[in-house]
Design a protein around this nucleic acid. Structure first.
Lengths: 343, 343
DNA sequence: GTGAAAGCGCTAACAA
DNA sequence: TTGTTAGCGCTTTCAC
């Protein structure tokens, strides 16, 4: 268990002062010969500055916190991957903490990030309208920049990067209407006013309007949970009590898988009898038994923009705004939907 | 952008010395009245010690690094979740960094963890026999404890926690043999000597032996990659050139999904014509079109043991050993396999 | 029981 | 250009 070499060691070995070594290492003006000797020695002994000491002196830890609901969910798993990649490109360490569908935990984690003096934080908010437990004023008070990823809380003015849920749902709905679908159910959150749902519903409704197709509010189905199990249950019941629609849209791919399964069990064929579509294009959608029609979010550029915006704020190059950065979504037509036009 | 309150602020406000405040906060002997005043004030202003300063003084950062191949893969996503949970229970921050199937990156990340003086590290090794780029001696030299999770490198003597691949494959194979299967293909890594493959193959072979069923080495199929696409391609080709086996086993669930898909496209019914089984029991296996027969790894206890062992080492309560901790696996029979006994 | 002082390893302001 | 000094915020001897 050796001790790491410190500036002092280097200074002593080279017969110069710590300050000079520091200057040389940080590319500040020193005699060329001095720099050469320092770099050579540093390379020789494999010295790296102690980040804690550096952070303390510079008041900057080079660490950013990430609050994520759950990496077990491949949607977030993918998002975390991209955030991690882009963050390390900028030289920051990523500290991961999971909110686990618990607003109180989300708030606690956020507070702990402030307490730990991280340089910034990225938050992937839970599906709640606002998190009353989260005291965002803390962030302002100590000046730690925050960027919201995928969604945001109305109570807090911070940058938000998310994909274009409105347009994604619009493209999907329009495509289905144009291929002869008429009655499309939309499985959404219990509270349809949540951003994740409301934006999609806006796109959905707009497509109906643009194409002059009639629509009923009964087709919007609030579900207690946005899970595969929930999609399964809700559709199992619905199919027993209502006539079949032309298609069923789900808030995300997982829910759609549950829907497909429910239909399958009831002897309803997908897409022959009913079309099904999801949202997100998680990896599994491609390789599913019947590959899923869905809307792809470009998680890589989403993460990239998040990181860029946060880094700019941390560097003081840009102020924190409540700007919404919207990333385009793209329709991916696979095999759970089919053309329903007569003839 | 206010400044955080420091010990000095508290000391001044209370008219006592910094040292006393520190002692009071750390539960060291101080007058009861003093402690009360300190705690009250601290609570009042919401003070938290600066972790960088604390870390510097204590030579202990309370951060551990996690090297993970890829959180986009739900197997690792799930593992990361559990590691994160257990780590935070012990008060440590988790710094995540992805090796992305690149041994050089894995090595670089490892080195950076040492350079950053993290208190310890958990490594989920890539599927390579050994990582020549990773200089594990660094860890010993600076005394940062490492625990391997799911697999290990023979070159380095460190604790390893993994599930019982041998027994999992044994249970699975035995179950299939007992239900009338005879010819079972096993899709494995290009190098069947990797721990991930060799352990499973041992269990597979042992089951044949125990039940006195004949087996051919031709049934072990090395594949360049362990992915869904690879499973799909390999089986697509094999089915065209060989008679159908009774069942096909894959190294993990993703590969198995690819196998199912390939069979499906060739008009081979699962499980009617051929049984298929995976390994891991990733979330999707439950809700797949035809729910997958697989072997479940208990990732929660796996992660828990990893964390416990690492924490013990970081606290100096336990020495680093090269002990292998093996977590039991359990067979999960679903619908991609069926009883093939005659009659 | 409490305070003064030194130290963790680094950077920055100011002299020399 | 380089060295000296002070300071980041905390812990910890060691006297008092």
């Amino acid at each position: 268990v050796a001790k790491r070499t410190s500036l002092k060691d280097i200074a002593r070995a080279l017969g110069i002062s710590e300050a000079t070594v520091s200057l040389a290492l940080n590319g500040r003006p020193v005699r060329a010969e001095t720099r050469r000797r320092v770099l050579e020695y540093v390379d020789h002994v494999g010295y790296t500055p102690h980040p804690l000491a550096r952070g303390l002196a510079l008041q900057r830890s080079m660490m950013v916190g990430l609050v994520c609901p759950d990496t077990e969910n491949p949607y977030f798993g993918s998002l975390v991957k991209h955030v991690s990649e882009h963050m390390s490109e900028h030289g920051y360490s990523l500290v991961l903490s999971l909110s686990q569908d618990n607003p109180q935990r989300e708030a606690d984690i956020l507070k702990s990030f402030v307490d730990k003096s991280f340089d910034g934080a990225i938050v992937m908010p839970l599906d709640v309208r606002d998190n009353p437990a989260a005291d965002f004023s803390q962030f302002d008070r100590f000046g730690i920049p925050v960027v919201f990823c995928t969604s945001y809380y109305a109570s807090h003015k911070a940058t938000c990067v998310r994909s274009d849920y409105y347009d994604g749902a619009y493209q999907l709905t329009r495509h289905l209407l144009e291929t002869g679908h008429r009655e499309l159910w939309y499985l959404v959150t219990a509270d349809p006013d949540l951003p994740v749902a409301s934006e999609r519903l806006r796109g959905y409704a707009q497509a109906y309007r643009d194409l002059g197709v009639e629509r009923s509010d009964d087709w919007v189905i609030p579900c207690d949970e946005v899970t595969s199990a929930s999609g399964y249950e809700v559709v199992s019941e619905l199919v027993a009590s209502r006539p079949l629609p032309d298609g069923i849209l789900a808030l995300n791919d997982y829910m759609a898988f549950g829907v497909v399964r429910a239909l399958h069990e009831k002897g309803v064929r997908v897409p022959d009898d009913v079309s099904v579509a999801g949202y997100d294009d998680v990896f599994y959608s491609r390789i599913a038994g019947t590959p899923l029609t869905t809307v792809r979010q470009d998680l890589d550029v989403l993460a990239q923009r998040c990181v860029e915006l946060l880094v700019a704020q941390m560097r003081g190059e840009a102020p924190g705004t409540d700007e919404q950065v919207i990333i385009p979504s793209t329709l991916v037509v696979r095999q759970t939907t089919r053309d329903r036009r007569p003839g």
